[in-house]
Structures are given as C-alpha cells and as structure tokens.
C-alpha cells in the first residue's frame, strides 16, 4: 500500500511539473500567435510598440548576435584547440585558464551588463551600440562555447591523431582537417548553447546596446533586442501585452530556427572538409 502511495506521489509530481510547464508554453503560443501577422514582422513599431511591428528590433537582435558570434566563434575554437591539442593534459597553466573560464560561466548576466557598460561603452568609447552589446555577449558566451568544444575535441579517438602523425601531418593540419570535423557535434552543441543564451539575454543588453527602437543604420547605432523589447512592453507600456506575447513567440521561434541553421551550417562546412581530404 505504501509502495503504491510512493508511486502515486512520483507520478503526481511529474504530472504537476508537466502541467505547469505546458501552461506557460501554451499561453505563449496561443497569445503570441493570435497577435502575430506578416505586418508585425515587417513594420516599424509605433505608439511605443503597442501597434506596428518589430522589424528594426529583429534586425538589431540579429546584428547583436552576429557581432557576438563573429568574435566568439574564432576565439573560442582557438582556445578549445589549444586546451585539447597544444598543451599537456595536466598542465598547471591550462588548468588555471579552465578555472577562470568556469568561473566566468557563473557570473550573473546583470554583472556582464555592468562590466560591458563600464568597459565597452565608456572606457573604450563605443557608447550604447550594437557593437558594445555584441561584445558583452561574446564575453558571456565564450566560456561555455570553449568548454563544450574542448570536451568534444578531447573525445575524438586518439587513433586518429596517431594515424595523422604517422602520415606525417603537422599538428595544425591534423586539427584543421581531422579533429575539427570529427568534433562537429560538440561544436554544434556549443553554438546552440551560445546562441540560446545570447538571443535570450536581456539584463546584459539594457545598458550596453540600449533601448532605441529605430532601424539601426550601422553597428555603431544603439539597437533594441527582442528580449529588451518584451521587457519594455510588459513593464513600461500599458496595453503592450499582446505585442509582448507576439514578440515572445517570435523570440522562441527565432532561437529554434537559429539552432537548426547552426546545425546545418556546421555540418556542411565540416563535411566539405572531410571529403576534401
């Protein structure tokens, strides 16, 4: 009897969790879809975002993300490769680097916002701009990206390294032609984590890329990201809830779409490389 009670309790809490989570998701999907239209995606916002659309905000979001990825992908891959293949596994120095990266992962996003504001916006004089926001996000997603890629590279079977060595390939060539393509799944995972975190970010962007909801003319302009837009609509604009839900729906869809592209893009790039060998 007690046994059955326990089983019941476990099923009940699992159902409760599922119900709450479905409640959130269904609200966002139903309320979001009902306000969504083609013109919502294509128009400029008007009346503080109550009506009109989110076109400039979508563009700003993508530009901020582009800056962040443009900086963090090459740097991140370089560090991951160094940690996995160009340094002794037990090297004290590499461990210190790993430790600082892990510590960075835990820093709250609002603190990245403070740092980005003080360093990129004011100290480097980039002001409230898409570049400031993108660079702040790059600092934020680098640690996770590096550690994910590193674990993927380390997991590649050592026979491949020995084989490449036996063929007389330099270590750099081995990494470029064999290890990176072989670690593609981990690189995709790292990218997805980074894109998810960067696209969802609000607190780090308010004081770095700013609030301006006009169409940005260059990356030195201030640009409002989708997440900041949702925050602003729901907190500062009475009657902005419908547009906020529609933006939330777009944001979730955007994250899923970008993840799919990341998957396809990395696979294509790296497949081409393996064949070329």
């Amino acid at each position: 009897m007690k046994e059955r009670g326990f089983t019941l309790l476990i099923w009940a809490s699992a159902l409760l969790v599922a119900a709450m989570l479905l409640w959130v998701l269904s609200d966002v999907f139903i309320k979001g879809l009902s306000h969504l239209s083609w013109s919502f995606l294509m128009d400029e916002p008007s009346d503080s975002g109550r009506s009109g659309g989110i076109a400039p905000i979508l563009i700003s979001t993508l530009l901020i993300l582009l800056v962040a990825l443009f900086v963090s992908i090459p740097l991140g891959l370089a560090v991951a490769v160094w940690l996995s293949d160009f340094t002794e596994q037990r090297s004290e120095f590499a461990n210190i680097i790993r430790l600082t990266l892990d510590a960075l992962t835990g820093v709250p996003s609002i603190v990245y916002g403070l740092f980005g504001n003080a360093f990129f916006s004011i100290f480097l004089g980039l002001g409230f701009s898409i570049v400031s926001g993108g660079l702040t996000l790059a600092c934020m997603i680098l640690p996770v990206f590096i550690r994910t890629c590193e674990s993927g590279l380390s997991a590649v079977n050592n026979d491949w390294r020995k084989g490449a060595l036996a063929l007389g390939l330099s270590r750099s060539a081995t990494v470029w032609h064999i290890l990176l393509p072989a670690a593609a799944p981990a690189i995709v995972t790292g990218l997805i984590l980074g894109i998810g975190r960067a696209t969802a970010e609000t607190a780090a962007l308010i004081f770095t890329s700013g609030y301006v909801d006009r169409m940005p003319e260059s990356v030195m302009d201030s640009g409002r990201s989708l997440a900041v837009h949702i925050y602003d609509l729901s907190m500062n604009v009475t009657g902005g809830d419908d547009a906020a839900y529609a933006s939330a729906f777009v944001l979730i869809t955007l994250i899923i779409l970008l993840n799919t592209f990341a998957q396809a893009g990395v696979n294509r790039w790296l497949k081409g490389r393996l064949v070329a060998l």
Binding site: G76, A78, F86, I97, L101, A103, L104, L142, R171
Partner: peptide
C-alpha cells in the same frame, strides 16, 4: 606548429584575462 601554438596560447591567455578584466572593472 610552433607559430600556431604560440598564437593559440596568446588567444587562450587573452580569454583567461576576461575574468580579471571583469573583476577589476567592477
């Protein structure tokens, strides 16, 4: 391999310094 190794290590040091940069600016 030698120059690549040096290049990669400098990038790694740079990324390791981000934490120091964040803390010192705070």
């Amino acid at each position: 391999d030698k120059p690549v190794s040096v290049l990669l290590m400098s990038i790694a040091v740079l990324c390791g310094l981000i934490l120091l940069l964040v803390l010192s600016f705070l």
